[in-house]
Amino acid sequence: MSAGTEKIDIIVSDIVKVNDLVTRFEFRRADGGLLPTFSGGAHTVVEMKDGEITRLNPYSLMSDPMDQTAYTISVRRDDAGRGGSLFMHHKVKKGDRMVISYPVNLFSLDLRARKHLMLAGGIGITPFLAQIKQLARSNGKFELHYACRTPALGSYVDELTAAYPNAVHVYFDDQQQVIDLDHLLDGQPLGTHVYVCGPKGMIEWVRKTAAALGWPREAIHYEEFLVPQSGKPFEVYLKRSGLRIRVGEHESLLEAIERAGVEAPYLCRGGACGQCETDVIEYEGEFVHRDHWLEPAERASGRKIMPCVSRFEGRTLVLDR
């Protein structure tokens, strides 16, 4: 199988500033045709050609999964990041052509659930927007608890509370409003599934609290996209390809492999799906593992690395790629 998924040529048909940090982008097919339907929770990987660098960042689809005329995503600006969100905010213009992947869902609804309990933090609201539209069409029962920093930064709060006044609960940090998680989880009917998308700390909090209350692991669903972090440059030898490559400060190992023209598998590019798992043949130094995929024993073995988010510091790294 070749790397990634099928691609779609799109035109940026609309750009809307949602608040100081978040901007929404609308994509339509460049050939005027219909986009594939998708399932709530799916993401698309957006290709950003930024000069010499090509970045591929995943963003949750937030539009109605049944709407085949356009997709929308929301991008939160990360001033300290490697530049993907800054590129989207500052360089992408209405009418630009871009390439996105077919939808991929690593955060789908469990359709057996009698009730879907959704917990969102900040920009983690986006997959829920599509899931709520899907559930609203099929009369699915859901309840959203959404934590934001301030009313000014509460993306889509007004739309959600207007459309679903009885199912949406919003919490503002600056007003010291906090989700009463113990109480919330304790009161759910049997057959409820919990979905959480937000900062790492929030996901950990929900998983730990649910586990302590005796919730089955299978009923807790979470999605956290990591973004590759910058780090010291390092060198890698790709043994199968016979290539020595250098990973720059602001580029991921996967991006450096791709830049060298070597085809490597991937899906989420956020350390979650496992698709880019790569065998380490030889190393002398320290891994900086940042994924959610490898088990502690696999990390300790020094035989695997997830090049989409993890890095290396040391003298020698030889990969089977």
Binding site: M1, T5, Q275
Partner: peptide, 13 residues
């Protein structure tokens, strides 16, 4: 199973 879990929309096998 690992292969099948990653079969994606638009890419049947």
């Amino acid at each position: 199973l690992k292969f099948l879990l990653n079969v994606q929309q638009g890419s049947p096998a």
